[in-house]
Design a protein around this nucleic acid. Structure first.
Length: 714
RNA sequence: GCCUUGGUGGUGAAAUCGGUAGACACACAAGACUUAAAAUCUUGCGCCUUCACGGGCGUGCCGGUUCGAUUCCGGCCUAAGGCACCA
């Protein structure tokens, strides 16, 4: 499950250090502006691809996960069915292996492309300065997929050809900057007529474009301006002419298999997980390299390998590799002088199993049986930015632990709630070197236009102008976070919690703004005042007499119990805290208008106030605790059971129904709950407004949706 | 470039399974209370039109399905998240 191979990193030759993708600004080091090079270094990998199938299949078992996240993971794993085949290099006879999901376009291949690091490219570069220069140039590329996909696609002919496995024709081999050695086989086949990237590349370099697929459904399949990428019917393909995609897939795969030139293959987009980091702040990878014994794991009794504290952190080199003593240690097997691994683990390594360790904190080993008692995690909550990497690594690691006998469950997280990002504007100034310095909102003064949008900003300290950057997720690097403490100091924690929960549902991203926080405080004040007016008028200790309720009393009790049902559902199932709070605001507004000093009225007021306090206690615990005592309870509200809905209070005798004529709302009627379809229709047609509208027009159609509306088509 | 999710009043949002668009708030305006201000309370508040009653339009844009579309389908624009070393 663990192996070493070379993989590309961003290398700053000036600082002699590896840079994260985020630290590469327009192809240059963020610190010294030196152009960054792509460098292949040896790194440790975990074989997550061995679990690709299971990670994909088990997504179906995650019923408590958002569809969005499961879709993203499925696409990331990217299972594809295709064909792997060899093109034979004409001069040397070596096999050039490629993989394609479109074997139906095989007869349209007009060139092959290999990575700059491919052995074939290296061979072509011998005695060819132009190819050498091109390969050298390819090193100046960023490693991120986004950069790869958006950069200019360039290439150079290698001068070599390879034999097409079916036609036997020679096909030119190109060296291209968009093919990577580390992914797949480092070589691809190109069909310009039926792939847009290949099309653009062929146009640019004057390579032949050969159409072999025509539309099956009469769609425009001309390739004059762009590739035709829809699956269709083969032509120009000799024995395969007239076949559909799936027929051609089978026929071509079988022919290749028969002739020993290729075979069907399932591929995954997912790549193995590189866990080596050339950094100080991380868990050291516990491995020792011995000249005689090779790669030796650090023995259990020597674990953990702890970080030295006397390191030089100057941004140049790996502090561990540069440390005078840390790398030097005897080999655990033979005792001879050996060298420690100085790379540390990717931090995702630890975040992949911390939840299991939290469940067995006393364990002497990695985990004990307590982990199984608690796992899987019932409700996991995290930002949507973790939808793929963290959540996929954790799922993989959990399966690894299962296969090592450490846990018994297949998945780590039963239910998942992904929070939206809180995003905020960024503000920066650019210095003489072109570096951006980000300022926090508290350090600047903003100008707003009539719509409240920020349209200008200057630094508070010296009044110098500040550039307004993109609105993005709050982060340390962009300095666009907000400290809630300032608001808490001003309004109190309950108000800030209430406001935060009320602003939007948790899975939605949010542009932070505290403009409405006053409203949250006003609501809590109104609740406090209502409760204390009630208390000072003398609490009601008697239960509601349900047998003698007036219409008004029935109505407000119905609202209370409807609210209880809704809030329970909002909190438990929907996690929409904003609508749960709004429903309580409506209930309090109704209570404000409920003027009833009778004994039963008082009892109802007590019932409603207790209901609101209970429903809000998870969100505003401090004020709820105090009000609960004030309402006459001896026990803290946190020990109370959640309120139950009184079904009898929900009952209604009639319901309001809309009347639509030709799709527009034209009237309303009050209908008894027991009314038949026929009597509802008759009542709708008897409505004066509707009668006038229909006039002499014949009724074509009439639809009755129970308890909702009557739709009449004339 | 690719994958995912969103776009509804001046603002944050609601409409849960295709059935009253804008609940609940913020902001704003007018009024009450006050010497005054704050706080509080009341009323109004999508756009156009109308003295009014009312009428028309309206959920990013264009088109489609349906008796009926914020909701479903196709295309486009746009913002955010991710793209394997920010974590």
């Amino acid at each position: 499950m663990v192996y070493k191979k070379t993989a590309p990193v961003n290398w700053c030759p000036h600082d002699a250090t590896v840079l994260a993708n985020e630290q590469v600004i327009e192809g240059c080091c963020w610190r010294c502006d030196t152009p960054v090079e792509r460098k292949e270094i040896s790194q440790w990998f975990l074989k997550i691809t061995a679990y690709a199938d299971e990670l994909l299949k088990d997504l179906d078992t995650l019923e408590g996960w958002p569809e969005q996240v499961k879709t993203m993971q499925a696409n990331w794993i990217g299972r594809s069915e295709g064909v792997e085949m060899d093109f034979i290099v004409a001069d040397s006879g070596e096999a050039l292996r490629i993989y394609t999901t479109r074997p139906d376009t095989l007869m349209g291949v007009t060139y092959l492309a290999v990575a700059a690091e491919h052995p074939l490219a290296k061979r072509a570069a011998e005695n060819n300065p132009a190819i050498q220069a091109f390969i050298e140039d390819c090193k100046k590329m960023e490693t991120s997929e986004a950069a790869m996909e958006t950069m200019e696609k360039r290439g150079i002919a290698s001068g070599l050809t390879a034999i097409h496995p079916i036609s036997g024709e020679p096909v030119p081999v190109w060296i291209a900057n968009f093919v990577l050695m580390g992914y797949g086989t480092g070589a691809v086949m190109a069909v310009p007529a039926h792939d847009q990237r290949d099309y653009e590349f062929a146009q640019k370099y004057g390579i032949a474009i050969k159409a072999v697929i025509k539309a099956a459904n009469g769609e425009d399949d001309s390739i004059e301006n762009q590739a035709f990428t829809t699956k269709g019917v083969l032509f120009n393909s000799d024995e395969f002419d007239g076949l559909t995609f799936s027929q051609a897939f089978t026929a071509i795969a079988e022919k290749l298999e028969r002739e020993g030139k290729g075979q069907r293959k399932v591929n995954f987009r997912l790549r193995d997980w590189g866990v080596s980091r050339q950094r100080y702040w991380g868990a050291p990878i516990p491995v020792i390299y011995c000249d005689d014994c090779g790669t030796v794991p650090v023995p259990d009794e020597q674990l953990p390998v702890t970080l030295p504290e006397d390191v030089v952190l100057d941004g140049s080199q790996s502090p561990l590799a540069a440390h005078p003593t840390f790398p030097h240690t005897p080999c655990p097997q033979c005792g001879k002088a050996a060298k420690r691994e100085t790379d540390t683990f990717d931090t995702f390594m630890e975040s992949s199993w911390y939840f299991a360790r939290f469940a067995s904190p006393q364990a002497d080993t990695m985990l004990d049986e307590h982990a199984n008692h608690w796992l899987p995690v019932d409700q996991y909550i995290g930002g949507i930015e973790h939808a793929i990497l963290h959540l996929l690594y954790a799922r993989f690691f959990h399966k690894l632990m299962r296969d090592e006998g450490l846990v018994t469950s297949n998945e780590p997280f039963k239910n998942l709630l992904t929070q939206g990002m809180v995003v905020a504007e960024t503000f920066y100034q650019t210095d003489a070197h072109g570096h951006k310095h980000y300022f926090n909102m508290t350090e600047i003064e903003v100008e707003r236009d009539s719509k409240g949008k920020i349209c200008g900003a200057k630094l508070l300290s010296d009044g110098s102008p500040v550039t307004i950057g993109a609105t993005e997720k709050m982060s340390k690097s962009k300095n666009n976070g907000v400290d809630p403490q300032l608001l808490i100091d001003k309004y109190g924690a309950d108000t800030v919690r209430l406001y935060t929960m009320f602003t939007s549902p948790p899975d939605q991203s949010l542009e932070w703004n505290d403009a409405g926080v006053e409203g949250a405080q006003r609501f809590l004040k109104r609740l406090w005042r209502q409760a204390h007016l009630h208390v000072s008028a003398g609490l009601s200790a008697t239960p509601v007499d349900k047998a003698s309720l007036s219409e008004g009393q029935k109505a407000i009790r119905r609202q209370l119990h409807q609210t209880l049902a809704k809030v329970s559902d909002d909190l438990n199932r929907r996690h929409t805290f904003n609508t749960a709070i709004a429903a309580n605001m409506e209930l309090l507004n109704a209570l404000n208008k409920f003027e009833d000093d009778s004994a039963n009225g008082k009892a109802i007021r007590q019932e409603i106030l207790e209901g609101i306090v209970l429903m809000l206690s998870p969100i505003v615990p401090h004020i709820a605790r105090q009000l609960w005592f004030d309402l006459g309870h001896a026990q803290d509200v946190v020990t109370e059971r959640w309120a139950s809905v009184d079904e009898s209070a929900l009952q209604q005798e009639s319901v309001q129904m809309m009347i639509q004529v030709n799709g527009k709302i034209r009237g309303k009627i009050e209908v008894a709950l027991t009314a038949s379809k026929e009597s509802i229709e008759a009542q709708a047609l008897a409505n004066e407004d509707i009668k006038k509208l229909i006039g002499e027009n014949p009724i074509k159609k009439m639809i009755v949706v129970p308890n909702k509306l009557v739709s009449i088509v004339i």
